[in-house]
């Protein structure tokens, strides 16, 4: 499940009002999420959740579900 907070961070960065983000959603399916913008979204997530990703961790994430799992592993419950 994609958390509301992650959804808001992504939508805000892409200046989107609404988009249905699912675990399986991949970047290219989301309007505006291109290779140049990708890094801005990653930076926005790092800032929004006060976490720091490792390069390899981001490269391994295949979809938004993977990104959510990665955040969950770093944010203390």
């Amino acid at each position: 499940m994609i958390s509301d907070k992650l959804k808001q961070v992504i939508l805000k960065e892409l200046e989107l009002k609404e988009f249905n983000l699912q675990d399986e959603t991949i970047a290219s399916q989301v309007p505006g999420w291109d290779s140049l913008n990708h890094i801005n979204i990653i930076l926005a997530i790092e800032k929004g959740f006060s976490i720091k990703f490792k390069g390899l961790e981001i490269l391994k994430a295949k979809n938004i579900g993977d990104l959510q799992k990665l955040i969950d592993s770093k944010v203390p419950a």
Binding site: S35, L36, H38, I39, N40, I42, L43, G55, I58, L59
Partner: peptide
């Protein structure tokens, strides 16, 4: 490109 962009991300647009 992606690995480079990620490692240069602290420089934001200049990193890209």
């Amino acid at each position: 490109f992606k690995p480079l962009q990620i490692s240069f991300r602290s420089m934001r647009k200049w990193g890209t």
